[in-house]
Computed example of a mutant assay.
Amino acid sequence: MVSLEIELWNAEYDLSLTSFEVLHLLRRRPGPRIQALVEAAGLRERRADPDDRCSSIVEPTTVGRKPVDGAVQGFEDELEQRAEAPVTEEPVP
């Protein structure tokens, strides 16, 4: 993943992997439709911004946070294992 992100960043696209994934998803399922699907699945909620009546605050719900929190923990665990692993001459897959 990191090598792919570096390629996207260094290429003419100037995109992080996260930005690419979000934009790619929106391209495949444009705006309101994907948002409606995520909201219908109970993964996000939208509420009025109390400081700006023209804006909304969009946040993941408790249900939406659960898989993300698990994935973040898995990512951090894997990163820690790789950071602690001895350096070898073998190429990284």
Rank of each mutant, 00 (worst) to 15 (best):
S56I: 07
V38A: 13
S56Y: 10
R44E: 12
T62K: 11
V87R: 14
L26V: 07
R46C: 04
S3F: 08
L8F: 09
R82A: 10
V92E: 15
V2M: 07
F75H: 05
E76R: 08
A48Y: 00
A36K: 15
R44F: 03
E12D: 13
R47D: 09
L17Y: 09
D49M: 02
R65G: 02
L23P: 01
G64Q: 11
N10D: 15
G64P: 11
Y13K: 04
V72E: 13
V22M: 02
R33Y: 08
R29P: 01
G31F: 09
R44I: 15
V22P: 01
E39H: 10
E5H: 00
L17K: 02
R46E: 13
A71G: 02
P93M: 03
T88M: 11
E89Q: 11
I6M: 11
L23Y: 08
G31L: 12
S16V: 02
E80S: 07
A36H: 12
A85C: 07
L37R: 05
Q81E: 15
R33C: 04
V58Q: 10
R29H: 09
S3E: 14
C54F: 11
V87L: 15
V72R: 13
D77P: 02
M1G: 04
L8R: 01
P86W: 09
T61E: 10
D51C: 02
W9D: 07
L4T: 06
R44Q: 14
E59N: 05
L4K: 03
V22F: 01
T18V: 05
L4V: 08
V92S: 06
Q35W: 10
E12R: 07
P30S: 12
T62A: 15
W9S: 00
P86S: 08
E89T: 07
E39Q: 13
W9K: 00
E84Q: 15
V38N: 03
Q81H: 08
F75C: 03
A48D: 14
I57K: 04
D51Y: 11
V87D: 13
V72C: 00
A36C: 05
T88Q: 12
A40R: 14
W9Q: 03
S3H: 08
F75R: 07
L37K: 04
T18P: 00
T62I: 13
W9A: 01
Y13V: 03
S19H: 06
Q35P: 00
E78S: 08
S56L: 14
T18R: 01
R65Y: 10
S16P: 04
L8E: 10
Q81A: 13
D69C: 03
R44P: 00
R53F: 06
R46T: 13
